[in-house]
Amino acid sequence: MELPPNNFKRALSERRHQLGLWCSLPGAYAAEAVAGSGFDWLLFDTEHSPGDPLTVLAQLQAVAPYPVSAVVRPASNDAVLIKRLLDFGAQTLLIPYVQNAEEAKAAVSAMRYPPGGIRGVSGVTRATRFGRVPNYGMRAEEELCLLVQIETQEALDNLESIASVEGVDGVFIGPADLAASLGHVGDPGHPKVKALIEEAIARIGACGKPAGILTPDNAFAARCIELGTLFTAVGVDAAMLVKATEALARQFVRA
């Protein structure tokens, strides 16, 4: 049985833009419902959602038959959480709150087996097709993709050193936390925040790494793509559900 290809990683390496949707609803049913909507990747979040490794497992299983890539965000840059998600079959991880090169290196180490890293070894996991993928331990790294998230002024100050870490496949900008770090909590659309994001996209590109972002602002999303983001999430499932249901209710609620 062959090692499944990581189409998301290959697209980034070929400089093909990947359009994404942020999935904060933890259910497999919701994940499957959006899996065929036309996005290139879905982000399954366990940092700012009720999701956990077990709900992610169900989501990975639900979307597996669809032509969409799964990206998973662990709750933190934690080697145990990373190990579990990789064993469950996640191939692309987005690690939150990476502040410097040392933290980026720790994430790389958690993604790799010894001697290049510290990932624990188990031969009978979903990632190995329950032991059916020949030489999984030697080949896993080929299809694993590590994205690191910068979301503070400190991370921006260290951007080049973070992006230059060998084993980091992409750098993702987190506008909400970045805005808070800059004194504009709740206002990721502040002109200063947007200007720093635009500058960061260029800086990431200059390091030779793909840049990514999440923004529900369609105009700014288009601007980021124009500037060179290669993986751009343009909506959050829960927010879209809230807005659509409120809009529907307003059509029928009397003033």
Rank of each mutant, 00 (worst) to 15 (best):
I201W: 03
S161A: 15
F220T: 07
M138W: 02
N100F: 14
F220V: 07
E160V: 12
R112H: 08
V98R: 08
T125D: 00
E102Q: 10
L147R: 00
T92S: 15
G167C: 12
L182T: 06
I150H: 07
V133Y: 13
R126T: 09
G189C: 09
K105L: 10
V193I: 06
C207D: 04
P210Y: 02
A180G: 11
G183S: 03
L94Y: 09
L93F: 06
V108I: 04
A101Y: 02
M138A: 15
L144G: 00
Y113M: 11
T125S: 07
K105A: 09
P134C: 07
I197F: 11
L156F: 15
V133G: 04
P188T: 03
C145K: 07
G228Y: 01
A106H: 05
A104M: 09
S109K: 08
L147A: 00
E226S: 10
N158R: 03
L144P: 01
P114D: 13
V193A: 04
G137F: 08
P216V: 05
M138F: 06
N135M: 10
G117Q: 10
L182Y: 07
D169Y: 08
G131H: 08
L144M: 13
A219K: 08
L94M: 14
L227G: 12
A155G: 09
D217P: 09
V171Q: 06
I225R: 13
A219D: 13
R119A: 04
G117C: 10
L93S: 02
V121G: 14
P114W: 12
S122T: 13
A140E: 14
V165G: 01
P188F: 00
A219H: 11
G117A: 11
L93Q: 04
I213G: 00
D177S: 09
I197Q: 08
R203M: 06
V171K: 01
A140N: 13
G137R: 14
I213V: 02
E198K: 13
R139F: 04
G120L: 10
A195I: 01
Q91A: 15
L196E: 06
A155R: 00
K192C: 10
E198W: 06
V121C: 15
V168M: 12
G174V: 00
D87A: 11
G170S: 02
H184I: 05
C224S: 12
V185E: 09
Q91E: 14
A206G: 03
G89M: 13
E141Y: 15
T152A: 12
A140H: 06
N135L: 12
A155M: 02
Y136N: 07
I173N: 01
A179W: 00
R223Q: 10
K192V: 15
G212A: 05
P134K: 06
L178V: 09
L214S: 02
F88M: 14
G205H: 05
A140W: 09
R126H: 14
L93E: 04
Q91S: 15
A176P: 05
A163R: 03
V133H: 11
S181E: 12
L93G: 02
A219G: 07
R129L: 11
Q149H: 09
A104Q: 10
L94R: 02
P191V: 07
A219M: 08
I150P: 03
A107Q: 01
I95S: 10
P216D: 06
G186Y: 10
G183D: 02
Y97R: 14
T215W: 01
Y136R: 09
A101M: 08
